[in-house]
Amino acid sequence: MNTQMNVNEALPLDTFSQGVKDCIPTLLGYISIGIAFGVIAITSNLSILEIFLLSVLVYAGSAQFIFCGLYLAGAPFSVIIITTFIVNLRHFLMALTVAPYLTHYSALRNIGFGTLLTDETFGVAVTKLAKEKNLGGNWMDGLNLTAYFTWVASCTLGGIVGKWLPNAESWGLDFALVAMFAALLILNLVDVGKTKLIHYLKLIAVMALIMYGLLYFLPGHLAVLISTVIVATIGVVTEK
């Protein structure tokens, strides 16, 4: 793999290797969820080749889990594709948040940034944005490619593990994802200043109420999408 070593310590680092480094803390999340996915996919009658292809082509944790569930349930292909679309629609908002900082790169590189955008890389990128106010393309590539290869390898490994240990799920590994989102949320709340922090905490409380209400009649992934749109709007309106 191409790791450029750019020893330019005085500048904020836009190097591939710094992107790789900043990705490392999230790898445990990718590895554990990837392995869990592989194990579940095997029990859903997918072959190891199919697990590999799905993680290469779709590259989205929750959508891949839902894919398995629907496929096993014998859902029509149209339903599987539409559900995948809705589950991953939140990436549209994430891409829209990150993209304005990367417009000075070529269209092709921007397609690359978008193609490999996930919840986790988005979380790491906005955490960097909150601290440094800018994003570098080499850094993004280092982050994105490390996450991508780790995910594909972990899913495939999970498939192999699942062939040997059918009960490898439920070791607490599924909670890695929740823990990771919680940590990324906290990292986005530090250094924002007291007034802003209080505003954010109030919005999170509102978010809890709205999520609770929406979950009565919407599946979780739609509730996430709609409550985000509502609460971000409340945020703008109530901003002082």
């Binding site: 939140r90 908002l93 994430m94 829209l96 948040t97 304005p100 919840d119 988005f122 979380g123 906005v126 909150a130 929740v178 989102f181 919680a182 990324l184 949320l185 986005n188 709340l189 954010y200 919005l203 999170i204 978010m207 809890a208 999520m211 979950l215 979780g220 992934h221 509730a223 996430v224 409550s227 985000t228 609460v231 971000a232 945020g235 703008v236």
Partner: peptide, 15 residues
């Protein structure tokens, strides 16, 4: 858009 990170991350945790 500046509210999206906090909103989406808290929604994912709350879910």
């Amino acid at each position: 858009l500046s509210y999206i990170p906090i909103c989406i991350l808290s929604a994912l945790v709350l879910e």
